[in-house]
């Protein structure tokens, strides 16, 4: 492998797997109890609350999430109302959101490892294996080249 190709691959891996890709994102972790507290009015008004199927917010999961994911990092401490406020921020266009200002608690969202209980996980594994297999065959056979 020539040096140029090696450098390109190294930079690619560095960019793709840089810690920031795993840690820089933030927001709230999907927490069912907090969902209920913050979003009951929304759920009641949502098309997703209609019908027999349980809302994702109503699912009773001992792990706290219907996805049962395991966290990749530990950077998920709750950030509370003591954090900086955007005083100059104009909330126009966001008035429709019915938030309880007394519950200003935010948990940082982050990348999470996917776990098998997800809907369609086996099919996703099959799709991934198939795509890898196709790529492997193309490397070996080099069709059209």
């Amino acid at each position: 492998m020539n040096p140029g190709k090696t450098v390109l691959i190294c930079i690619g891996l560095l960019l793709l797997l840089h810690p920031a890709t795993l840690l820089a994102h933030a927001g709230e972790e999907h927490d069912a109890s907090q969902d209920k507290a913050m979003q009951d009015p929304l759920v009641a008004d949502s098309i997703y609350s209609a019908g027999d199927e349980a809302s994702p917010l109503d699912m009773d999961d001992p792990l706290g999430s219907p996805l049962s994911r395991s966290a990749l990092d530990i950077d998920d401490e709750p950030m509370d109302a003591g954090m900086p406020m955007m005083d100059g921020m104009d909330h126009k266009g966001m008035e429709g959101m019915d938030h309880d200002e007394s519950m200003q608690t935010v948990e940082l969202a982050h990348h999470e490892l996917v776990s098998p209980p997800q809907k369609g996980y086996n099919l996703a594994v099959a799709i991934t294996l198939l795509s890898g297999l196709v790529y492997g065959v193309m490397i070996l056979k080099k069709p059209g080249e």
Binding site: L22, H25, A26, G27, E28, E29, H30, D31, Q34, D35, M38, Q39, L42, L67, R69, L72, M79, A81, M83, P84, M85, M86, D87, M89, H91, M94, M97, H99, E101, M103, Q104, T105, V106, E107, L108, A109, H110, H111, E112, L113, V114
Partner: peptide, 16 residues
Amino acid sequence: ISPPLGNQPVLGLEVT
């Protein structure tokens, strides 16, 4: 790896 997705925002905060 699943991409991050938080819940509805808390208006006025700047924490992320």
